[in-house]
Simulated assay, not measured.
Amino acid sequence: MEGLKVSKANLTAYIHPSKTNQVSQPILRQLSSLLFKFSEIFHGVVLAYDLNSLHTCAKILPGVHPYFAVKLKVNLLLFSPKPNMLLEGKVVKVTQESIHVVVLGFSSAIITEKDIREEFVCKTKRGQEVYASRSHKQHVIKVGTMIRFLVKR
């Protein structure tokens, strides 16, 4: 799927002196805090990380609380959709005005009525809203359907 990319990052983790006997624990906690949040720095949502190396020489930062700065090399899996990318998602809601889709199980997208192809018309079948194709009677978009769509913005 488009929109997924691996990025190599050089990061710095700041560790409190009380955690010096278990350095990996606060580092993993800081890396985990990046997961499933949009990051302006990485221009995307961090889905996974792989810690490649940890610089063994920590630097003590002066100040009120003398934290240790530890250099990290990390591979990050990012979800960063751009305009005109083709994405795939599962339909979770259909209304006359829009189709609501979940991409990769966590990211929500909305396809508005003006962006739905003209061949589809909204109908009510068995009490549910669906978009049915005028040219292919079996082509129906309903809750649970997997669809591909183009990112506009």
Rank of each mutant, 00 (worst) to 15 (best):
T124K: 13
D115R: 07
E2F: 09
F149K: 01
G44C: 03
V64D: 13
P83A: 05
K5E: 09
V130D: 06
A9G: 05
V102Q: 08
N84L: 11
F106A: 11
G63I: 02
Q96C: 11
V140H: 03
G105D: 03
N84Q: 13
N75R: 05
L4T: 06
Q25K: 11
S33T: 07
S7Q: 14
I15Y: 05
N84Y: 06
L78Y: 00
K152P: 08
D50R: 15
H100I: 07
K90E: 11
L104K: 04
R126K: 10
T112C: 10
V102K: 10
T112I: 12
F79Y: 15
K123F: 06
F42A: 01
V101F: 00
I116V: 14
G3E: 02
H43C: 12
V103M: 04
T112V: 10
L61H: 03
Y131R: 00
M1R: 06
I141M: 02
Q30I: 00
R134T: 14
T12C: 11
T20R: 15
H100W: 04
S80H: 01
I141N: 04
T145P: 02
S53V: 08
R153E: 11
F42N: 01
N21G: 03
Y14W: 07
V6W: 08
V140T: 08
M1D: 07
K125A: 11
N21P: 03
H43L: 12
L78H: 01
L72W: 09
L47M: 13
K90C: 07
S32Y: 12
N21S: 15
L34C: 09
L72H: 06
L87R: 00
L34H: 10
E118N: 10
K114S: 15
S135V: 14
S53Q: 12
G89R: 00
